[in-house]
Nucleic acid binder design. Structure first.
Lengths: 228, 228
DNA sequence: CCTTGCCCATACGCAGGCGTACGGGTAGAG
DNA sequence: CTCTACCCGTACGCCTGCGTATGGGCAAGG
């Protein structure tokens, strides 16, 4: 009954066209698991519902994975890979630390889908495996922000404070957008809100006032051992 | 076998002493449900595990509640009551809006238990019943903050922006403390962090600079015709 | 003592998810 | 054509949680 157009694609390239009913890959299961997670949390990553959604049965699943935890591990690994790759791909080539933080901000407030997924995964921090991945991703994000603030001329401690402050604001905005979207404005109001946060969370050392529209490049301070 | 010390306490007073094995009340079930929720999320609110934890069987539960959803409703109602009561009790008598926001901040960053519970409940926004309660609580909190910022002299739109900003920071700090507690400093470092957020999130209209240690009371502006 | 009402234990059927055993079908190699 | 490896369907047992039916213990009231 199945079409059986044997392709057997490796893990490095996404099929891009699911082609109705090809043979499933482990990554297809992992992607479906992430989708389910974004929708219904960790508990939604169940073998039989996923199999139904993919149009197959458990027989397929237990061929690719040893058990449910293996699927979770694969899904979380895929998520971690996406996070780091996307972040590095979109804002990694930006030299100016100010513009980097701004980009992070706009990405964080624009990509609702990835934010929702993050909240869903983070909500299951009880699970030790999940906790491990969440820790790595969060610490990496924070470290990136700390670097940005240090490149702006802040000493390490204050850079950590500002980075934590900014990261907390990202996360909180995600929560607000998910739980009470009517409290998050749209259109020009949102742009005002965004500008307020950016202006507030990226202060210039010593002087807070001046330059509302233009964000002049700040000369990074030498910080003892390493340059920015 | 049970001690059977008939007391039959009403819903308005907590027993204060569980006394080993009294007859359970509906509120005792609701409190247990909130505890389970804070630990394991919405899925942890299961009848049989809760019964085991309370030392009884399902027979007790289905005497007090019609079904699981009724327990959820009672638990969420208890949560909402606690939230509003506690907030109003602790910072309701403060006249100065600046001090009110500061108190909100310190409470939000101090009470980790209630924050964890909030995150656990908010993580189940899929559930329509949960969503309803989360919306009410969040909107009430936001409205309170908006009032504070308006009392500080901000026009409504900017007051909403600042309130949302501050609220997002609260929520984000909760997330950070839960997911990556090692990124949240303790002791004097935390006080520095707190002071930075307070100083940044409660600006004085027009002038951002000045008064690092002393926070002078700002005269609230009349906002009939629109201030700022 | 007996009745009534409150609170709970026991036992059952049902549904859904996990993991396993086993068989079948297809494609490619020979 | 046959054999083999790969991928998946089917069927089963197990566990856990939901909801119900039913009975029983205990205290208060008569």
């Amino acid at each position: 009954m199945p079409l059986t157009a044997r392709v057997c694609l490796s893990l490095k390239s996404t099929p891009s066209v699911p082609d109705a009913k090809q043979n499933l890959t482990a990554e297809a299961w992992a992607r479906a698991a992430l989708d389910a997670m974004a929708s219904g949390g960790l508990e939604a990553v169940a073998v039989e519902p996923l199999a139904r959604r993919l149009g197959v049965t458990k027989g397929s699943f237990y061929w690719h994975f040893a058990n449910r935890e293996a699927l979770l591990r694969a899904a979380l690994a895929l998520w971690e890979r996406r996070e780091t790759e996307e972040v590095l791909a979109r804002i990694g080539d930006e030299a100016d630390p100010y513009a980097r933080i701004v980009k992070v901000f706009k990405e964080a407030n624009a990509g609702y889908r990835s934010g929702r997924l993050y909240l869903a995964i983070a909500a299951a921090e009880d699970h030790p495996l999940v906790n491990e991945f969440v820790r790595r991703v969060s610490e990496r994000r924070m470290a990136y922000l700390v670097e940005c603030y240090e490149a702006l001329g802040f000493e390490p401690t204050r850079a950590q404070h500002w980075a934590r402050f900014a990261y907390a604001t990202f996360m909180g905005n995600l929560q607000i957008r998910r739980d009470t979207p009517e409290l998050m404005p749209g259109g020009p109001q949102f742009n005002e809100y965004l500008k307020l946060m950016i202006k507030t969370l990226i202060p210039r050392e010593g002087a807070d006032r001046g330059a509302e529209e233009s964000h002049p490049h700040v000369v990074p301070m030498r910080q003892s051992g390493g340059g920015a």
